[in-house]
Amino acid sequence: MTATRGSGQTRQRVARAAIILLIGGYLLLPMFAMLDFSTRGPGGSRTLDSFIAIGSNRDLLEGIFNSLATAVLTVMGMLLLLVPTMTWTIVRVPRMRRVVEFLCLLPLAIPAIVLVVGIAPVYRGVTFLFGGSALTLVFIDIILVLPFAYRALDGALRSIDVATLADAGRSLGASWPRVIRQIIVPNIRPGILSASVLAVALVLGEFTISSLLNFDTLQVTINLIGKRDAFISVAVCLAALTFAFVLIYAIAAFGSADQRRRQVAKEDE
């Protein structure tokens, strides 16, 4: 029986290694190809000129700033909109939960092009009120990230007894903003992190709407540069991908550290 168990574990280890290699290869090979292409110099030499050029390209820097600022503002707007709404729905109007879910998932079913056609007239008003900054994309980006953020937050909210915790906070004297800030948010942190990662990834990768509404975001700029200088374009893509990986890894590591701390505390019991 021990031998059978041992060979089973070996098979599992081999299978796990094979899967990791396969997925790793699938993700890393294109990145190696991009690195190879973007560092090609004249006469078969290697150069980092394309990467250095990123820092001196004003359009590109503006695109990077626009995308990063939009991502940050989108995360803030999405959390400010969703967390109180979902908490309130659970505590006070649970029968509306399905309606809120439906509204949040709706953008998933609408193609980006349809969304742009519908929202373009609205953006004339937005531009009139807030100016023509690319940061106004925040409004539409919040709508775009709703389905993914809703799922992440919903899972976290289901893992705690929101109604009882909110009632307990209220009975102790906490106002609704305090209940959300001091009681709900700290206990759904993993969901907030997931929703934020998804929102950042989506905003950094969004092209269709920015392009059709004529805003210069990172993806739009990469596309334009790609038409002029493919080396810089690929270098930026590689840098953006690496940045996204690092960001996701950092957030995941933060989440695991939190989980480990709780586990250690549990074992100390």
Binding site: D161, T164, L165, D167, A168, S171, G173, I183
Partner: peptide, 14 residues
């Protein structure tokens, strides 16, 4: 200004 103890466990987990 009322204190309440609930049926479900209501301590703040954090």
């Amino acid at each position: 200004d009322m204190g309440m103890v609930f049926q479900a466990y209501s301590l703040f987990p954090n």
